[in-house]
Computed example of a mutant assay.
Amino acid sequence: MEGTIRDHAAGRGVGPVLGKFDGVSRIAVLRGGGLGDLMFALPAVSALKAAYPGSTVTVLGTPLHASLVQGTAGPVDDVRILPYAEGVRPGQEDPAAVDTFFADMRREAFDLALQLHGGGRHSNPFLLRLGARHTVGTQTPDATPLERNLPYAYYQHEPLRALEVAGLAGAPPVGLEASLEPLARFAAAADGLLDQAANARAGTAGRKAGPVVVIHPGATDPRRRWPAGHFAELAAACAADGCQVLVTGDHSERQLAADIVAGAESAGAGAGLVRSIAGEADLGTLAALLVRADVMVANDSGPRHLAQALGTPTVGIYWAGNLINAGPLGRSLHRVHLSWVTHCPECGADVTQVGWTAPRCAHDSSLVAGVRPENVYSDVRLLMATSPHLRGRPAFP
């Protein structure tokens, strides 16, 4: 194995960078999942586009991914929505729809296809059905091999894993983390949300609008969620310190956001100083809002990764295992508060044993409840003190 890699190596990246394939102009990247999952793949997409100038990269993803690509400026050229299929996109599988998808994709005549969706038990056979000339991706011991394979280990930083796969396709890194820009057409909607928050503060005892703190209390896995009461305590402290506080979320998180607003008011925040915008902002508007925020506070979640990609300072609440896979690499703009819990609070199951070989226990109790609000707020204040956004709202490209 060592001799084979060195004989074909073209340089070094996160791992070996092998020789490029010839004649690559159409590239497919398989990455299902949530918002953060696509963000983890973006550095690899940038590397591929640099290694194969003039190529187009199509992400095989989800409607949420399509919304992000349409709502921001980034390296992905287009998104094709995956059909429901086991291990690739959860849902009721329709064999006819799957067959139609692959017929359409084979007509695209992809030169290169990358599998960045798990260990490959289901996603490698799925990728092979595209009919691409070359295939590269991750592989667990029980997965069908591709042309070039990266051994899959659950605990690896996801963007770096994707970059390691890109290296096997001949693409060295051009950046280690995702980078996105907001689009001008969403600026007015973002300004409207900010102006409503500013007016609420201005109408309270004649106060002026202060720094903008965005709070996102949701996460796909309930165990990654900081308790609503902790977010409420933090929001109240931010409001008392002169901040405009906006609580974000999708339609399903409206009640959670409302509970945090109510809790903040009970803790002393004046009416309207902490405001929910859950369900009010599409991804383009959220990006335009986040790029103008001074700090975002969130669980390990897609919106936190989006804020980071936009250059907005963040304070993240993480379970230690998730930090390995999904944490920010730097600490000048991005602070993290860790929970070192290793066993389920309800049944005592070892929660560090996760991934493709170890099904999780049935309990959803928070693994990050022990993170203290006062410690989180300390980092919020430090980041606000150095926020470049306080010198004026940034321009849109």
Rank of each mutant, 00 (worst) to 15 (best):
G167Y: 05
I215T: 06
P145S: 02
A178F: 05
D300M: 12
A44S: 11
L286G: 04
V45L: 00
A189L: 11
L116C: 02
E181C: 13
S387R: 13
P211S: 10
S332M: 14
A85M: 09
T62D: 02
N199Y: 13
G302A: 11
H363D: 10
Y318I: 09
H216L: 13
T62F: 04
V29L: 04
G229W: 05
V315C: 12
L160H: 13
S276A: 09
P43D: 11
A240I: 03
D99M: 01
Q139L: 09
G206H: 08
Q156I: 07
L273P: 12
V274H: 12
T312V: 13
A262P: 02
A258V: 02
A28P: 08
A288N: 06
F231C: 08
F21R: 06
V24N: 09
G32M: 07
F101H: 01
I81L: 11
S55N: 01
D104F: 03
E177C: 02
A28D: 03
V174N: 07
S301E: 12
S266T: 14
V214G: 07
Q255M: 13
A41H: 01
L329Q: 08
G218D: 10
A287D: 14
L168V: 03
G170H: 00
L338W: 08
Y154M: 01
N322V: 06
R185L: 11
S339N: 07
A239Q: 03
L246I: 14
P173N: 01
A385I: 03
A187E: 14
A178T: 12
G229A: 13
T314G: 05
L256C: 09
A281Y: 06
D142P: 05
G370H: 10
G170L: 07
T342L: 05
R335I: 04
L64F: 09
L390H: 08
G61I: 08
D99R: 12
G242E: 06
D350A: 08
V17Q: 07
P373K: 10
M105Y: 01
D250F: 14
H363A: 07
A202R: 14
A326P: 07
N124F: 03
E86R: 15
T58M: 04
A235N: 05
A349V: 14
V295D: 11
G348I: 10
A9H: 03
A281D: 09
G279H: 06
H305V: 09
C361P: 09
P373M: 05
G355W: 08
V245D: 06
A198K: 10
P151K: 01
Q244L: 12
A109L: 15
R225Q: 15
G272K: 06
R129K: 14
A9E: 14
P217V: 07
H363C: 02
V315A: 08
D142A: 11
L38A: 13
H305G: 05
M39A: 15
L160S: 02
G218S: 15
L30Y: 03
S46C: 00
W340L: 14
L338R: 13
C347V: 05
V59I: 02
A200I: 00
F110A: 00
P141Q: 08
F102W: 00
A143G: 07
V29Q: 05
D94K: 00
G242H: 08
